[in-house]
């Protein structure tokens, strides 16, 4: 099963590498990993999307907690949560495609953020599935490049991590 794990860790050199190293050393899967400082500049928040059985997830959480720089770990998949990912996508847009792409972007609530006479660059946010769906809706030959941020996630409700 897919899990979204939130990690608060000291914003120190090497902390990211400790988490990444843990995943690779113990053979845990990483689908995506994002990290940036929080409102408290001394703390970074990392979101890891991973897959594994219940037993593996229990170990993942315990091993993360064991890292000296990790302050808090939570498996957001245990409760209701919101997940968002940012995608920047550059597509060929010439002739009749120009209108079609623009319409598609509107349907997906994407925004065109850069335009040339031959291309559009768009910005989309949403769940990973929505971004996948947008890519699939395009003619595969149209896509020039795609960059995705990986999931960021937060729990629903008033309580913080």
């Amino acid at each position: 099963m897919r899990h979204i794990i939130s990690i608060l860790l000291e914003n120190e050199a090497g902390a990211l590498s400790r988490v990444a190293g843990l995943f690779s050393a113990r053979g845990y899967n990483i689908e995506a990993m994002t990290v940036a400082p929080t409102h408290d500049a001394s703390i970074s928040r990392m979101t890891v999307a991973t897959r594994g059985s219940e037993e593996v997830m229990e170990q993942v959480l315990k091993q993360l907690n064991k890292l000296v720089e990790v302050i808090r770990v939570q498996d957001l998949s245990d409760g209701p949560h919101i997940e968002r990912e940012l995608m920047l996508i550059k597509v060929h847009a010439v002739g009749p495609d120009r209108e079609e792409v623009k319409r598609l972007a509107d349907i997906f609530r994407g925004r065109i953020i850069d335009v040339t006479d031959r291309s559009y660059t768009m910005e989309l946010t949403g769940t990973g599935e929505k971004l996948d769906a947008f890519i699939h809706a395009l003619d595969p030959g149209m896509v020039i490049e795609v960059v995705r941020s990986g999931a960021s996630a937060i729990s629903r409700g008033a309580k913080g991590i």
Binding site: E55, E58, Q59, K62, Q63, N65, K66
Partner: peptide
Amino acid sequence: IDPSSISK
């Protein structure tokens, strides 16, 4: 002492 040793 190490929770990660338990049920590993």
